[in-house]
Design a protein around this nucleic acid. Structure first.
Length: 850
RNA sequence: GCCCGAGUGGUGGAAUAGGUAGACACAAAGGACUUAAAAUCCUUUGGCAGUUAUGCCGUGCCGGUUCAAGUCCGGCCCCGGGCACCA
């Protein structure tokens, strides 16, 4: 028999599907396991990053199936998004057509991988049956005050023609197209994610199954600061200035006040004064700078307003400046400057020659006249009236209490997190179900009128929002029945992915977003697998949605994903030619470019990317090696969280291994089909040796899969196969053959999560019925794995000098005796005094001599 | 600047709780089978010295703790990632 993977893989993919082997249904008597991989955007083709993601998730899901769990393992399509609209413009193909064609192609690619998905639950978010419920949720959120519209400065990407959320701006550039993002004042829809800032932060301690890295990134993004709001009176005016400070303990050192250029008081204070002309110029100059330039410009600049405010504790008049480094959208947009203890304020004070007063000093060490940088450490208060001598940590609350009693301050917390802007001025997204009526204002569409469908005959020119078309916009007001205009913004595509894992629980439910009971049974997701690029986007939004749905009574849990595995990227080396930049490997001949003949530099190993010409095509590889060999390589090359470096010869090696397994089982097909029963317990001699290897392999593979060390699990199977290749020539007694038969049966099962087609085929060849994919995972007996004789290393002064084969239960005295008889050990302790002997049972003896 | 993660043979990577560093694989070299090739099988493969026995060195660098350190502690270097005028 030949390992005909093409025929065999197609055969089992068909059988799994026909027999609905992986379809899930609620069973209260079984422990559930919800395994989920991040659903793909239907870009057209599966790439190796997808392949690895799904291979990892599938190995975990298949293992859980075999461990007796009721497994939910669904897949779908994150189908809205801008590329579909760009394709419509370029290829004159409707976004829906383009998207559904891509889904069809990618679905067949996924089928070729042989994944254990419940395909009956497949969803596409661009399907009205899906986004209808999103529209309903949007209205419910609006009713709950969690969705609102406001005029604000937003991130605008000219090339995408739409607004972006803060999370979608990378260093001032669009996360999708890389163009510069500008600020634009627009009426926009927001979700009030900031209502959940504290809970999003606090609940992270209930996520021990998440990588610390992702939690840290979310923590930074939320950016909680504990401090106080302190109010300063303005000299000779009625207005007051409230600042936010994390260092109220330094208030006695606040020697000037800073306002953001956009702060309303900035203009008010200079109005109709001699400072007005220059001040307005200053404000204009700063606020006209792009967000990017403003954040990168570290030079401190300010403008004196001519006004003073009163430090509530020192009662001093301190000057009010407008400063370029004060952010308008953090805290209150105003800052009390403490130059002695803040680096930025120190720089500012030096430039504008403002007083610097030390108020914190560890044991009186800090001397004002010698200060050449801000002191930001801790210490006791000085120059602070009755607080002098108090450690600054204690002074924080004491000072806030005093301010509170004066009515000039209170404890306060600031977050960096802003509300989520969800309006997008694009066609291919979920329409926001609201209308504008001159009489009634903003009115939600009636629930019975949902879904608001996307008009099919929109025109895609690339300019403007395609939804700005008369027949879509013109409507009647749901409240008064008068003429009204429909909202033309659609939702950010991250809204769809914020709740799709819940829709999978009851994908055809037609009375709401999802069936509460199904979601209560299946959720939350036990294991989520995906890329780290969503650390603060999708993974934060989904957590927010779960909490919102919980508060609306849909769910009883707080978090969507109990455990998260962020898989590493698939990388490959790049080649660059001086004339053509990135080269395809086929254009590199003997280190030279085959087009221009110049020397080629072998670039870094980088994430596979079409533009860098270092991608490999999963379809071609599936043709050449089959899904099982490719899955093996994508799991074996590196642990799942780590990036993997593509290696053609590595894939070939895994292909050879698949063949090796096939030949091994094939050579013993007679034994497997014979009446001889597999041995159930070792009977001494060779049979015990075979049992030892079998059960050690089961033990190791089981433990490694449980801790997601899939690479070492596969290595353990390889070792097992190597051992069986030797054993197959040493089978003399019937017991040996029975043990070998049992070993082969275990081998087929151990391989099932990694090479499912091969396992099913060998299982059938071996004369068994039923799907091995749904059989019980092999169990092990630990005592079978233990050797009677163990190898004990003998160290003399920390260096291994001998290895002794001794009974595993040998006493320390026996081991010492044997060691002292060993000639090499003798040579190293001869003439010396034994000071110490340490024995680690059945492992090592350490002798110390002097 | 701050916060994470990492640094191990020619290469990808093992070493789960401080106990024989280099499992498993790739690559390379040699050999068997073959008219030949492919496939397969066997052997060698961290470095240095040595005919062997064996000895010394070796997990980014320097130091420490320990009978014993890839693993723990202190101080660096370099790489990857995230955050960054957040008061």
């Amino acid at each position: 028999m030949k390992y005909d993977f093409t025929q065999l893989e197609a055969k089992w993919q068909k059988r799994w599907e026909e027999n609905r082997v992986f379809e899930a249904s609620v069973d209260q008597n079984l422990p559930k396991y919800y395994c989920l991989e991040m659903f793909p955007y239907p870009s057209g083709n599966i790439h190796m990053g997808h392949f690895r993601n799904y291979a990892i998730g599938d190995a975990i899901a298949r293992h859980k199936f075999m461990r007796g769990f009721n497994v939910l393992h669904p897949i779908g399509w994150d189908a809205f998004g801008l590329p579909a609209e760009n394709a419509a413009k370029d290829n004159k193909k409707h976004p829906a057509e383009w998207t559904y064609e891509n889904i069809k192609n990618m679905r067949s690619q996924l089928h070729r991988m042989g994944l254990s998905y419940d395909w009956s639950r497949e969803i596409a978010t661009c399907d009205p049956d899906y986004y209808r419920w999103e529209q309903e949720l949007f209205i419910k959120m609006w009713e709950a005050g969690l969705a609102y519209k406001k005029l604000s400065k937003v991130n605008w990407c000219e090339s995408c023609g739409t607004v972006l959320a803060n999370e979608q701006v990378d260093d001032g550039f669009c996360w999708r197209c890389g163009n510069l993002v500008v600020q634009k004042e627009l009426e926009q829809w927001f979700f009030k994610i900031t209502d959940y800032s504290e809970e999003l932060l606090d609940n992270m301690q209930n996520l021990p199954g998440w990588p610390e890295k992702v939690l840290t990134m979310q923590r930074n993004w939320i950016g909680k600061s504990v401090g106080a709001e302190i109010t300063f009176d303005i000299w000779n005016r009625d207005e007051k200035i409230t600042v936010f400070s994390t260092r109220p303990d330094t208030i006695y050192g606040a020697t000037f006040m800073l306002l953001a250029p956009e702060h309303p008081l900035s203009l008010q204070l200079i109005a109709a004064t001699e400072y007005e002309h220059d001040g307005v110029e200053f404000i204009k100059e700063i606020s006209s700078m792009s967000r990017e330039n403003r954040l990168t410009d570290k030079e401190k600049r300010g403008f004196f307003t001519g006004s003073f405010c009163i430090n509530p504790l020192t009662c001093e008049e301190i000057p009010i400046y407008i400063a370029n480094y004060v952010l308008t959208d953090y805290g209150t947009g105003a800052v009390m400057a403490v130059p002695a203890h803040d680096e930025r304020d120190f720089d500012f004070a030096k430039i504008y020659n403002l007083p610097i007063r030390v108020v914190i000093s560890p044991a009186g060490e800090i001397v004002e006249s010698e200060l050449n940088a801000a002191y930001t450490g801790s210490g006791a208060l000085v120059n602070s009236d009755s607080f002098d001598g108090l450690p600054n940590e204690d002074a924080q609350s004491a000072i806030v209490e005093l301010l509170e009693s004066m009515g000039a301050g209170k404890k306060s917390i600031s977050y960096r997190l802003r509300d989520w802007g969800v309006s997008r001025q694009r066609y291919w997204g979920t329409p926001i179900p609201f209308v504008y009526c001159d009489k009634c204002g903003i009115v939600p569409v009636k629930l019975e009128d949902l879904p608001i469908l996307l008009p099919k005959n929109a025109v895609f020119t690339g300019a403007g929002n395609p939804l700005e078309m008369q027949e879509f916009v013109e409507t009647t007001c749901p409240k008064c029945g008068g003429a009204a205009r429909r909202e033309t913004d659609t939702m950010d595509t991250f809204v769809e992915s914020s709740w799709y894992y819940l829709r999978y629980c009851s994908p055809k439910y037609d009375k709401g977003l999802f069936d509460k009971e199904e979601a209560a049974y299946w959720g939350p997701v036990d294991q989520y697998v995906g890329g780290i690029e969503h650390a603060v986007l999708h993974l934060l939004y989904s957590r927010f949605f779960t909490k919102v749905l919980r508060d609306m009574g849909w769910l009883s849990y707080d978090e969507p994903f109990l455990n998260l595995l962020t898989q590493g990227m698939v990388c490959k080396e790049t080649h660059r030619s001086p004339n053509h930049n990135w080269l395809y490997p086929k254009d590199v001949k003997n280190g030279k470019c085959s087009i221009c003949g110049e020397r080629v530099t072998v670039g870094r190993v980088e994430k596979m990317s079409k533009s860098k010409h270092n991608v490999v095509d999963p379809d071609e590889l599936l043709d050449a090696y089959g899904a099982d060999a490719l899955r093996l390589f994508s799991l074996f090359a590196s642990p799942p969280e780590k990036e993997i470096e593509w290696s053609d010869s590595g894939v070939e090696g895994c292909f050879r291994f698949a063949n090796r397994v096939f030949r091994l089982v094939d050579a013993h097909i007679g034994l497997l089909n014979s009446d001889m029963p597999p041995l159930s317990a070792p009977k001494g001699g060779k049979s015990s040796e075979i049992f030892r290897h079998t059960h050690a392999a089961i033990m190791k593979v089981t433990a490694d899969i449980e801790r997601f060390q899939l690479n070492t699990a596969i290595a353990a199977i390889m070792e097992f196969v190597n051992a069986l290749y030797i054993f197959q020539n040493e089978l003399k007694e019937d017991d040996d053959k029975g043990a070998f038969k049992a070993a082969l049966i275990s081998l087929i099962k151990l391989l099932a999560p990694f090479t499912p087609h091969l396992s099913e085929e060998l299982w059938e060849q071996a004369g068994f019925t039923r799907f091995v994919s749904r059989l019980q995972w092999p169990t092990y007996v630990e005592s079978y794995t233990i050797l009677d004789n163990v190898c004990i290393a003998v160290q003399v002064n920390g260096k291994v000098r001998a290895e002794l084969s001794l009974a595993r239960d040998a006493s320390k005295d026996e081991v010492v005796k044997a060691a002292l008889q060993n000639s090499r050990v003798k040579a190293h302790i001869d003439g010396k005094v034994i000071v110490k002997q340490i024995y680690v049972p059945s492992k090592l003896l350490s002798i110390v001599v002097e």
